[in-house]
Amino acid sequence: MLTVTDLSIRFERYDRGLTRTVLTPVHHLDLDIGPGEIVAVIGASGSGKSLLAHAVLGILPDNCRVDGEIRFKGDPLTPARQKALRGREMVLVPQSVGFLNPLKNVGAQVRRAAILGGAAGRDAPGITDAAFARYGLAPAVQALFPFQVSGGMARRVLTATATVGRADLIVADEPTTGLDQEAAQQSMAFLRSLADEGRSVMVISHDLSAVVPVADRVAVFLSGTTVEGAPAGSFNGQPEALRHPYSRDMWRALPGHGFDPGPDRAAGPTWSEGEADGCPYVRRCARADAACADTFPPKRHFGRDFVRCRHA
């Protein structure tokens, strides 16, 4: 359904005077999502995962350049095609109610999403009512403003905006952030049932333990690139089921797997701006050698799975 190959996103920024800085928050990124599948993109907060979502939908700011290839239903996603398809065939489920218009009641906003999704104006209220009913929201909720809905309710409303059209690709950005465990599970269950209807779901999250039980596949995101693609089940077995040292360290950090905070934090951040050459995990990796610091690790395939590590 969606195939992302060697994607990179560059921002150009002018510092004092004419000094030009190029930031590359996303590079060498690969991802593929089949129909009816939930693929979780897992990585640390603030590592640029949302940019991936924005790149797929074509809503990045103007001062950035996107290279690589994104294919949707087999054909390349050009800016024109993105413009035609977003809201109709591919939709975003944003992080929080902060992405809703604060001065418009939520019912009106879902109705607008329905119209943008291709519904006729007179059908929109009925579709909205159905979507609210589907997620257990009372009709009265439609009259509420975003600041009046609770966190769990907000998830339902935001998920509802994605289901009023006939979208085949749903990109959910941090669907469990700020929710208690029960609400987080429910939020993921909503996405699961959408996937079970045959849609593809990309879940962007840092919350491994909430997302992995529901996802089909996991893409491990580190410093702007995907270092491993593996079945979600790999995170349930032994760490050896995972190929990349970062994925294994992440596995060990899970509450049920020893709660090990991983390699020495004093090694500094995993990522810095100028470090595009070597392996992004080189400074923390137990198996790193001189070659890891110099060359970007090549991608190695194992069926649908892949890893970017010289030692895997």
Binding site: G87, P94, F99, L100, N101, K104, L116
Partner: peptide, 24 residues
């Protein structure tokens, strides 16, 4: 953020202005 989400829903600049920004 709400303008970004509106764009993701397929709203163009005029649509964002009319349906979202104007009221604010």
């Amino acid at each position: 953020d709400y303008a970004l989400f509106a764009r993701a829903q397929g709203e163009d600049t005029m649509g964002v202005v009319r349906h979202h920004a104007l009221r604010n």
